[in-house]
């Protein structure tokens, strides 16, 4: 049985149909990357999976049941900064536990452990505006992971980072994922990142009426190092194969825009 399943999901904004008839299944513990040209509806699909957006047609199924309202097992790392600017890094990470009724003291102790896991153990009392973009993303990651969600939705989380920080974060993500194998739906417009991280890469067509048009298993061995794996012949072969399909969509999106 699949853990998360899109069944004939369509989303329209007014008269603009962003995605149409999307079918997609994620097995438990699977890491799936979703790639596609900008504006094809990747964020829209994540919002649907999180329960923030109700599809105009179709449903999302979660562990064999249709999803109603907010997704209770999902952690969502948004494309934009979503941590609270008025709370310190530590309090931001502690917050999900406080929402679940734990006292602040206890929550902060656990939060500090998570800050250390994402390499921010030395900055617990910094406010978001005092941290760099990459550090804020890590706070966001720790904040999402501390609640131990079984489904992780990530929307171009590393897009704004420089190459070095980015590879660091990608490896960190893989290491954390290796620990308990959550189901991950990872959105990116960077094909290399998609392949390096995932078990499967799904390609979306250009919008409007976008839907998945390609589904590629990534049989690269784990554990992986994202920088090294990019140099292997198998990676290059996969990259060429998927890019052949993706390129056409990117061109179409470009022409349409």
């Amino acid at each position: 049985m699949s853990f998360l399943e899109f069944r004939g999901v369509s989303v329209a904004f007014g008269r603009y149909v962003a995605v149409e008839g999307v079918g997609l299944r994620l097995a438990p513990g699977e890491f799936v990357s979703l790639v596609g040209p900008t504006g094809c509806g990747k964020s829209t699909l994540l919002n649907v999976a999180a329960g923030l957006l109700t599809p105009s047609e179709g449903e999302v199924w979660l562990e064999g049941r249709p999803l109603k309202g907010l997704n209770p097992v999902a952690g969502y790392l948004f494309q934009q900064d979503a941590i609270l600017p008025w709370k310190t890094a530590l309090d931001n990470v502690a917050l999900p536990l406080v929402f679940r009724g734990q006292p602040w003291r206890e929550a902060r102790e656990k939060a500090l452990v998570w800050l250390e896991k994402v390499g921010l153990g030395r900055f617990p009392h910094h406010y978001p505006h005092q941290l760099s973009g990459g550090m804020r993303k890590r706070v966001g990651l720790a904040q999402v992971l501390i609640a131990n969600p079984r489904l992780l939705l990530m929307d171009e989380p590393f897009a704004a980072l420089d190459v070095q920080t980015r590879q660091l974060m990608e490896n960190e993500l893989l290491r954390l994922w290796q620990e308990d194998r959550k189901t991950v739906l990872f959105v990116t417009h960077d094909l290399e990142e998609a392949i390096a991280l995932a078990d499967r890469v799904v390609v979306m067509s250009a919008g409007p009426r976008s839907r998945p048009i390609g589904d590629f298993p990534i049989p690269l061995p784990r554990p992986r190092d994202v920088a090294e794996i990019r140099l292997t012949p198998e990676f290059l072969r996969l990259h060429r194969e998927i890019w052949d399909l993706l390129r056409g969509e990117v061109m179409r999106a470009h022409a349409g825009a």
Partner: peptide, 22 residues
């Protein structure tokens, strides 16, 4: 910010939490 708000809700904030923390 709607994103901050959605994030808090997904992290499990109830109405009183939203009022107090957001």
């Amino acid at each position: 910010s709607p994103v901050v708000l959605q994030n808090a809700r997904l992290l499990g904030a109830r109405r009183s939490h939203l009022l107090r923390h957001v």
